[in-house]
Simulated scan of single mutants.
Amino acid sequence: MNKEAVLLVLSCLGVVQALFLCGYLFTLKKGDRKANMFLAFVILGLTIRIGKSVLNVYLDLTPWQKNLGLSGILLTGPFLWFYGKLLLAEQKRFSNKDYAHIIPFVLFALGCYFIPNTGNPISYAIYIMVFLHLAIYIGLSFGVLYKCRTKVHPQRATWYRNLSIGVALIWQFYMGNLAGFFSFYIGGALFFSLLIYLFSFLFLQKHAFRLGKYNTSTLDRSSSQELMDGIRSLFIKEEIFLDNSISLESIAERLNIPPRKLSQCINENEQKNFSDFVNGYRIEKAKAMLSDPKYAQEKIIAIAYDCGFGNVTSFNLAFKAKTQLTPSQFRNKSKKR
């Protein structure tokens, strides 16, 4: 298999995977369906453009076919912006005025047969205007990210930032190719393939949708932080974690909030589930006891129970996961200090 064949296969794999990902998002029922649809349109727009690049290298496309491929760029920008407004700014309603932003795509796609694309100055001007359109929406998208970065869960902000950077890099490649900085035209398709498989991996790991179960929650960022301060105060001052019978439900009842809201609060502020959050306090208590000469003769199993663990096995596993040492090793190391 020669070099050209390898490049063709790699490029086509990215396009096929992108189409699969679009289909997955269009039919995904979990999480926010509107957000999934917006993201699918972002990827579909890029796929149309990249697909045109792949075909243009190996086939003799007519001007209208090139224009149809170019129209995908006009689809990507608005939906990237919509996706950010929904995911970060939590704008749930989009009016006809909002959707008017996709009119350039519709007009360009319908008029692709009449728009010149023959390599003349007018064709280059149209090409630049299409990519200028995407640049404007990339700028708007980063504006939404900057405005909302401190108000949303870091996971969402990071995901949207990475998505926007990926689109911006594809834009930069094609502009660089037009300016003569990059002569390897098919490189855009190869880079797209890399991005698509990376995004697919994130989806399979549920990084992008992990917060889907909280999409309908009324707990905003400031209220979540305020509630978290109360939870920490309860754990530090009253040491309720020492009770091995505590549960998400019992703590939620004491705070007079729904268990779902308590779970969301801990997840958003600590990036932990309830069990890991509680065990974190128990391990810190155990470390203090194991390094205190007053408890030098205390058996480790007794310390485990005193710190709120129901059995010594779960204590040993949790302790080593947190400190990379067994309780005995930690105690011995503390004695040598």
Rank of each mutant, 00 (worst) to 15 (best):
residue 192 F to C: 05
residue 205 Q to I: 06
residue 159 W to S: 01
residue 140 L to C: 11
residue 166 G to H: 09
residue 161 R to T: 15
residue 240 I to W: 12
residue 186 I to Y: 07
residue 164 S to E: 06
residue 180 G to I: 05
residue 219 L to T: 10
residue 229 D to N: 14
residue 134 L to I: 05
residue 191 F to V: 11
residue 152 V to E: 12
residue 139 G to I: 15
residue 182 F to N: 13
residue 218 T to A: 08
residue 134 L to Y: 00
residue 209 F to N: 00
residue 160 Y to C: 04
residue 234 L to G: 09
residue 172 Q to V: 02
residue 169 L to K: 13
residue 168 A to I: 00
residue 158 T to Y: 13
residue 136 I to F: 00
residue 216 T to P: 09
residue 153 H to M: 08
residue 152 V to S: 03
residue 220 D to M: 05
residue 193 S to F: 05
residue 232 R to Q: 05
residue 198 L to F: 04
residue 222 S to Q: 13
residue 204 L to E: 15
residue 157 A to S: 09
residue 189 A to D: 15
residue 230 G to F: 12
residue 163 L to M: 04
residue 198 L to I: 07
residue 200 S to Q: 07
residue 132 L to V: 13
residue 137 Y to Q: 15
residue 243 D to K: 08
residue 171 W to E: 07
residue 218 T to I: 12
residue 176 G to I: 01
residue 231 I to S: 02
residue 213 K to S: 09
residue 167 V to T: 10
residue 138 I to R: 02
residue 220 D to E: 11
residue 216 T to N: 14
residue 231 I to R: 05
residue 146 Y to K: 06
residue 137 Y to H: 12
residue 222 S to H: 14
residue 175 M to L: 11
residue 192 F to N: 06
residue 179 A to M: 04
residue 179 A to G: 10
residue 205 Q to M: 06
residue 140 L to E: 05
residue 144 V to C: 09
residue 235 F to D: 01
residue 136 I to P: 15
residue 166 G to Q: 14
residue 228 M to Q: 02
residue 200 S to Y: 11
residue 237 K to M: 07
residue 206 K to C: 03
